[in-house]
Design a protein around this nucleic acid. Structure first.
Lengths: 222, 222
DNA sequence: GGCGGCCCGTACGACTTCCGTAAGGTGGCG
DNA sequence: CGCCACCTTACGGAAGTCGTACGGGCCGCC
């Protein structure tokens, strides 16, 4: 139900059935915000919140809690643990979405104030330009300098196609040069990023033109 | 037992046998955090917590409470008095250490937000810039001036990669200079900080770029 | 003032990793 | 069916890093 509300509000949403799955998915997908029910099978919401916070970078992860009305103690506890906001059941779709929006706005403002350029992300792919690290589905990819730069450039322009010449200029910074260099690097990159390098799903070849990064969704953008 | 857990986790630990001694030692040693059992001979834990908070600078002193399971009232009371977290007995070593870590991290973040330089920490590594002392797993590291500055700078930007050039500027304060100087100092620093200098786990080299301090987390940061 | 120790910057060779180029194979497009 | 674009592989060299060694400067100590 919650997933539906948020999807309709235009957010990308992932969900987990219990506490352990939640922690695993959070580590893998690096969400911008977590909506957390206090009543969970397995680990309870408070414990999940605590561990999210304990995880690396977790101090900054916004958490919105869902609590049943009257769980006064839990509510206090939740806020003590650093939930950024909470919504008491029963709640309206509109209320939930509003809270999420406002928390996201606050956290975006805080991030911008801290001067963080932020991460590049598309589907289960994440690049951290500052750290020069790349992740796919929670696993770190061992990319070389050129591979990283190339992928970062493509991620910055999702869906756009670039010719080898242009890539040579904008990634390598060269005016001239053997264009096959680009070809080879694309191949090496695919080898590390794609599930099946023989049938590239992320870095697509555009015949007669060059390459394009496909942000998972093939259909027309929303 | 608790002392042992924390020592093994790399913290320096002091302890007291009862409430009065606790207050005395806290006043004398100015700890970064207090782990407080509710069941104490003499003054009980709640009273100790109250007085710690009342003492000079005590509003900022993080307190983690140890409570027996089911003492619901005490738990709420403890949180009202401003315990920053609590652990219910019986607890695992790992749980206790995690709570302590997360509370320390939060308090460090709060301190930084308040403009206090405070003390730099990552995993079992701790730097005290004011005292110019460095500790790892409870042991003091004998760092030289440059080594300390270099490590401090990296710790201030955990996870971020820096080129030799930038380090030269921001740590040495030079505009030009032999970049191999940086290389050599990184090596010397590793010799003292890393468990196995041949396979650096803390100060990672990023090929073609420079170096990065890795805050223990190998996985993707949240 | 002389001596020794510590720290620092520089230099050099060995080694590793990465990159660019070339050459031959493959597949789509006209 | 042929051409051209793209893919694949291999290899030599360039660039980057590491380990080590050396000499100079600063300071404390005798």
């Amino acid at each position: 139900m919650v997933t539906g509300y948020l999807l309709r509000a235009g957010y990308r949403v992932d969900r987990a059935a219990d506490g352990h799955e939640a922690l695993a998915r959070a580590a893998a997908t690096r969400p911008d915000l977590v909506v957390l029910d206090l009543m969970l099978p397995g680990l309870d919401g408070l414990e999940v919140c605590r561990r999210l916070r304990a995880a690396e970078g977790g101090e900054r992860l916004p958490v919105v809690m869902l609590t049943a009305k009257g769980e006064e103690a839990d509510r206090i506890l939740g806020l003590e643990l650093g939930a950024d906001d909470y919504v008491t059941k029963p709640f309206s779709p509109r209320e939930l979405v509003l809270r999420v929006q406002s928390v996201l706005r606050r956290s975006a403002a805080a991030g911008a104030a801290a001067g963080r350029p932020g991460r590049l992300t598309a589907g289960d792919l994440t690049l951290d330009p500052a750290a020069r690290r790349a992740f796919r589905a929670g696993r770190e990819l061992a990319l070389t300098l050129r591979e990283f730069d190339l992928l970062a450039f493509l991620l910055r322009h999702p869906g756009a196609a670039f010719g080898r010449e242009e890539l040579m200029q904008r990634v390598w910074g060269w005016e001239f040069g053997d264009l096959s260099t680009v070809t080879v690097h694309v191949r090496r990159l695919r080898e590390k990023v794609e599930d099946d390098p023989a049938a590239p799903a992320l870095i697509t070849t555009v015949w007669g033109v060059g390459y394009r990064f496909d942000p998972a969704g093939k259909g027309p953008a929303l």
